[in-house]
């Protein structure tokens, strides 16, 4: 594997297994996220990438295998414990409260209280400070929104996505995981979200990006983790392969050999896909 001489992965998994009765959702999967990179996770429907991501974000507990965060072995007993370790997830349905304003959403579940008796006895929220800090986080990512006191439901899809991303980045200390962040967006808004992901990466925050959109993956990812049949089929650099080849790896027509070249694994499928071994 080409990652052997690389720096310590931020988030790493070895031999993860998860079975539901006779169904094996994760079948000895490995995973490596390097510091400061955008790692795209792609795979066919049913390849098990959702299960993999759930295991890495604490939403499911694997039956076997090891997860390391910053080199240290770790077990998550729920999404909260992954969050407590600085892993934030942007969910596909965004998990925002529509009628609440942007600042309230940024601090939902982690509200700040006023100092002193007002906060400790009267439990009074520090709305001003939350607004200011929310504004800082938004400015940090150069997200231009006119008012942080407008309800999230008044925002466009791209703006909502931006709020969800800003919230995740604000709280993440080690990793941000984004599940299909451009799936529901138009061309222009997708472009803005991809810009946003780049800015998150440029801040030094590694990003795991789950996506079906191959052009987006090729535009933004530093490396691509191809998931197939419950395990990692390959990790490649987008500059080394064409989209057709990556799709072929995803569907099993091509396989990646030790040297990083491809071999035809399924000649008929490869012929149908119009790809050949390098």
């Amino acid at each position: 594997m080409s990652t052997a001489s690389s720096p310590t992965p931020v988030l790493q998994a070895r031999g993860l297994v998860k079975r539901y009765g006779h169904v094996t959702a994760i079948d000895g999967a490995d995973f490596d996220l390097l510091p400061g990179e955008v790692l795209a996770v792609i795979g066919d429907n049913g390849a098990g990438k959702t299960s993999l991501i759930k295991a890495l974000t604490g939403a499911l507990t694997p039956d076997a295998g090891e997860i390391r965060l910053g080199g240290e072995p770790i077990t998550f007993n729920g999404p909260q414990s992954a969050r407590a370790h600085g892993i934030e997830t942007v969910y596909q349905d965004l998990a925002v409260a529509a009628s609440m304003d942007i600042a309230s959403n940024m601090f939902l579940g982690r509200e700040l209280r006023r100092p002193g008796v007002l906060g400790s006895v009267l439990r009074m929220l520090d709305k001003k400070r939350m607004r200011e800090e929310a504004a800082e986080h938004m400015a940090d990512l150069k997200i231009g929104l006119r008012s942080l006191t407008q309800a999230v439901e008044t925002l466009s899809g791209g703006q909502r996505q931006a709020v969800a991303v800003a919230r995740a980045v604000a709280w993440a200390r080690s990793v941000v995981v984004m599940d299909e962040p451009t799936a529901a967006l138009g061309v222009k808004e997708s472009g803005q979200v991809l810009d946003l992901i780049r800015r998150v990466r440029d801040k030094g925050m590694p990003v795991v990006l789950i996506s079906h959109n191959m052009p987006h993956v090729f535009e933004i990812a530093d490396r691509i983790h191809v998931h197939r049949l419950g395990r990692r089929a390959a990790v490649i650099k987008p500059s080394d392969y064409s989209m057709a080849e990556v799709v072929a790896i995803m569907t099993g027509a091509l396989a990646v050999d030790e040297a990083g070249g491809t071999v035809v694994a399924d000649s008929e499928a490869a012929k149908a896909a119009g790809v050949q071994a390098t």
Partner: peptide, 27 residues
């Protein structure tokens, strides 16, 4: 006061908006 100025109040609104979103935000 409790609804508009405490975390509890915000959580009540969030719960009514979307229980799933509230849960995913650690409420």
């Amino acid at each position: 006061y409790a609804l508009s100025n405490t975390g509890w109040g915000r959580h009540v609104y969030a719960l009514g908006n979307s229980p799933e979103a509230a849960r995913l935000n650690g409420i």
